[in-house]
């Protein structure tokens, strides 16, 4: 099947997951300048899985110690509204696509593992370049390949053909996608996030992480995810669907303003950053 119009394709998916009510209730609270940590905690506490995840994240900041933070409002104060927002967002999306199915010998959790590594690396890079929103860079990395998950879930036959094409012709997965369905995962992923009304910076990161020079705005977050994807593939964590490493885009590299030596520091922090985000690992298995 060739996709003529990505937006129509997304809208025509019958059981396309929608974000749960809890997410919108939660958004309403954190956007309300009068809301306190207690108000936000009330909404969160109605979902036991999210509440316990938030406690674990708060406690992991104080590594080495026994569990200390036992109530949600305290955890919210420590993590901050922005941090909490992204944890809820990440868990919500991972929850929507949970369930392990194999197509051939390909397990979708490998794509998520690659995405989680890209997320952790994006956060390390963001810290290095003083990007204003570390949590957003993590989410952008986590979602950068969500288009692949959509193809996997809603076009399983085509997904199988794409993976076979990658192996047979030794090409990049996006080229195989173009060949089989006429569009690639960045088109599908960015369109989905637009349908969900996600922040534009996340849409840009998903849309342009393979071609940062095409981005007209949000260049920095796009470049962060572009570099994080390259490093994550070089470190062989998870599987992006092919074994090819993209070439660094000069414009992206220049926009980050990093020294080449900084790459060593970034790589050295990947595993500890992955430790800190282990909470999401349970959702991708």
């Amino acid at each position: 099947m060739k996709i003529e119009n990505v937006q129509d394709f997304i809208r025509q998916i019958e059981d396309l997951p929608t974000l749960p009510d809890l997410y919108f209730k939660f958004r309403e609270k954190i956007d309300d300048p009068k809301a306190s940590a207690n108000d936000v905690a009330k909404v969160i506490s109605s979902d036991q899985a999210i509440a316990s995840a938030i406690l674990r994240v708060a406690n992991s900041a104080f590594y080495g110690f026994m569990r200390r933070i036992t109530n949600v409002p305290h955890a919210i104060v420590i993590i901050g509204f922005n941090g909490i927002h992204h944890i809820v967002l990440n868990m919500t999306v991972l929850n929507l696509f949970k369930g392990k199915n194999n197509i051939g010998d390909f397990n979708i959790s490998k794509i998520w593992e690659h995405s989680l590594a890209t997320a952790a690396i994006a956060k390390v890079i963001a810290r290095k370049v003083n990007y204003s929103n570390l949590e957003e860079s993590f989410t952008a990395g986590l979602l950068h390949d969500i288009g692949k998950v959509i193809i996997y879930k809603y076009l399983p036959q085509e997904f199988r053909e794409i993976i076979e094409e990658v192996k047979k012709s030794d090409i990049r997965i996006r080229d195989a996608e173009e060949k089989v369905i006429g569009v690639d995962h960045t088109d599908i992923g960015s369109c989905l996030l637009m349908e969900w009304n996600f922040p534009k910076s996340l849409v840009s990161a998903v849309a342009y992480h393979l071609n940062p020079f095409l981005a007209k705005e949000n260049i920095q977050i796009v470049s962060i995810v572009h570099l994080a994807d390259i490093i994550s593939r070089a470190l062989e964590i998870g599987d992006g669907g092919d074994s090819k490493i993209p070439m660094i885009c000069e414009e992206a590299w220049n926009s980050l303003g990093m020294l080449v030596e900084d790459i060593e520091d970034i790589v050295s922090e990947v595993d500890s950053e992955l430790d800190a985000s282990s909470i999401f690992r349970e959702f991708i298995r």
């Binding site: 062989e236 074994s243 070439m247 060593e264 790589v267």
Partner: peptide, 22 residues
């Protein structure tokens, strides 16, 4: 995996850091 980048300075650094990491 990095052969095609022809020792581009950023890609070379990523390759060396990846080897050390692995």
């Amino acid at each position: 995996k990095f052969k095609e980048f022809d020792d581009h300075y950023v890609m070379r650094k990523i390759a060396n850091s990846a080897k050390e990491y692995l």
